[in-house]
Write a protein that binds this DNA or RNA. Structure first.
Length: 482
RNA sequence: CGGAGUUUAGCGCAGCUUGGUAGCGCGCCUGCCUUGGGAGCAGGAGGUCACAGGUUCGAAUCCUGUAACUCCGACCA
């Protein structure tokens, strides 16, 4: 056991200090570095590749549901924000402003975008004339800035990367459908690609997006019991249409406001991925999202080296030709043991060892990152086994995360119970809520937990408000959150 | 933005109390040797001690200020 610890001496164990563990892990795994600008990080290649994988899979789903990408400006005129009162109030405290260029003051201040509803709204008002122009289904991949007081790499940085979809529809029903559809897309992506089980639901009024009629979210539990909002989808009604005068002439020859939606997922999802699956050895990446799925490590002394390398090369090309993301680490100056530990820390799902003894027996050794299980596989069925193992790892990581969440979810009848569940048991608490903002605020005040969402399919229905004891209108998940 | 802590070589740290010109481990470079769970030996390179002032003959060390990071709170993808 002492030896076990030695392998990961650079990483603080989760049980000792989860925050330290997180920082240690993302640093040692080389995902990011701090930048000279407060609250901003550099996404190093290994971290950025994760984002690229997220982009690849999300983008595919957006296109499949009829969306197209575009790019809107980074700068947004001040007057745009003022058109939607709730919106500007929500974002004002964290907006950076461009006020001058060179030595000249600008006529109008420009905000560095925190989100793009307003500028999309303005452009849509120019583009949409007729019902024949609808729906407009546009997504953009962009950076946005929100000047955060308290930052944490990936989870909350002053500048972050995301995608924001903005759509306009002829009817409320169609826009509502779009809002729910994109929540489904996020759910599918997060559960199937990232192996993270999520809770789908609607945000309470106090937690919804500034300017939205309804905000839906998917929420995930981290290994320290805290929640991360992994994605949001907003039904904006005709709020932005009225603010920006987005009207169309309908079939009945009447001018009507459009109904809009917006939905986003950010680089925060990388933080969630790390905190859901990581362990004391470091990262653990689900195969479908892992930039490298299999790392081949050739083993053996100099006299067998050539023979081993020829074999690894063959295996490498074989796996690659079957669309498996595979790499070989044939560096001679590092011992196999060092590499084993290194790639476990970096979260690569599967390790393939190939040495002289294996070659003599026409086999290879496969080792799973998630369970540590080692198995010997005949070279003749290697590709097939790698394929099936990657699938098994993907599923088993999901199952494990789901079991964890189930274990860390409890009903709370009273605010004292809720406090105990979220703080001492580090779990999610399911509780009834009467619908009064004051009762919700009181939970936050007394327990530190916020309402995560009102789930679509709660495991049970809670009948009394956790705060005031009156008849509950809603069943709500509460948790401490990032 | 408040409270606490940290900042010395790429990383982790010692030195600071009691001022005298900077050290340890890992990593890095060279060579030899090694390779199935972070090998070994020998030699070597590397530091405006976060930044700006001040005290002093002399400051990593004492004083003042600033910044960044981490943790804890108030606000948020």
């Amino acid at each position: 056991m002492a030896k076990e610890k030695d392998f990961v001496k650079e990483i603080t164990p989760q049980s000792e200090d989860f925050s330290r563990w997180y920082i240690d892990t993302i640093t040692k795994a080389d995902l990011m570095d701090y930048s000279p600008v407060r609250g901003c990080i550099v996404f190093k290649p290994d971290g950025y590749e994760l984002w690229e994988a997220v982009q690849r899979e999300l983008d595919r789903r957006f296109k499949e549901t009829g969306h197209r990408n575009a790019y809107f400006p980074l700068f947004i005129p001040e007057s745009f924000f003022e058109k939607e009162k709730e919106h500007i109030e929500g974002f004002n405290p964290e907006l950076p402003w461009v006020t001058e260029v060179g030595d000249e003051k600008l006529e109008e201040r420009l905000a560095v975008r925190p989100t793009s509803e307003t500028i999309f709204g303005y452009m849509y008002s120019q583009w949409i004339q007729s019902y024949r122009d609808l729906p407009v289904l546009i997504n953009q991949w962009a950076n946005v800035v929100r000047w955060e007081k308290r930052t944490l790499p990936f989870l909350r940085t002053s500048e972050f990367l995301w995608q924001e979809g903005h759509t306009a529809h002829a009817t409320a029903e169609e826009a509502e459908h779009e809002t729910r559809q994109m929540l489904d897309v996020y759910t599918d992506f997060v559960e199937n690609e990232l192996s993270i089980p999520i809770i789908r639901g609607q945000k309470t009024p106090s937690e919804k997006f500034p300017g939205a009629i309804a905000t839906y979210s998917i929420e995930a539990i981290m290994k320290d019991g805290k929640a991360i909002q992994a994605g949001t989808s907003h039904y904006l009604g005709d709020n932005f249409a009225r603010s920006f005068n987005i009207k169309f002439l309908d079939r009945d020859n009447e001018r009507k406001y459009v109904y809009t939606t917006s939905w986003g997922m950010s680089t925060r999802i990388i933080g969630a991925l790390i905190m859901v699956h990581g362990d004391d050895r470091g990262l653990q990446l689900p195969p479908r999202i892992a930039p490298t799925q299999v790392m081949i490590i050739p083993i053996g002394p100099a006299k067998t080296r050539e023979r081993v390398l020829a074999a690894t090369d063959e295996v490498f090309h074989e796996l690659k030709s079957h669309n498996i993301r595979v790499r070989v680490d044939d560096r001679e100056d590092l011992s196999p043991g060092w590499k084993f530990n290194e790639y476990e820390m970096r979260g690569i799902p599967l390790r393939l060892e190939l040495g002289p003894r294996d070659l003599d027996a026409n086999q290879a050794v496969l080792v799973r990152r998630d369970t540590g299980e080692k198995e010997v596989v005949p070279l003749s069925s290697l590709t097939e086994r790698v394929h099936s193992l990657l699938g098994e790892i993907q599923k088993s990581m999901y199952d494990r995360a789901l079991a964890f969440r189930t274990d860390r979810s409890q009903p709370a009848e009273t605010i004292e119970q809720l406090h105990d569940i979220v703080r001492n048991k580090r779990s999610f608490a399911l509780a009834g809520w009467c619908g009064d903002d004051i009762c919700e605020a009181k939970v936050k005040e007394e327990t530190g937990a916020t309402s995560r969402n009102i789930p679509f399919d709660p495991p049970q229905v809670m009948t009394t408000c956790v705060t005031c004891g009156k008849q509950a209108q809603y069943t709500v998940w509460f948790a401490r959150a990032y």
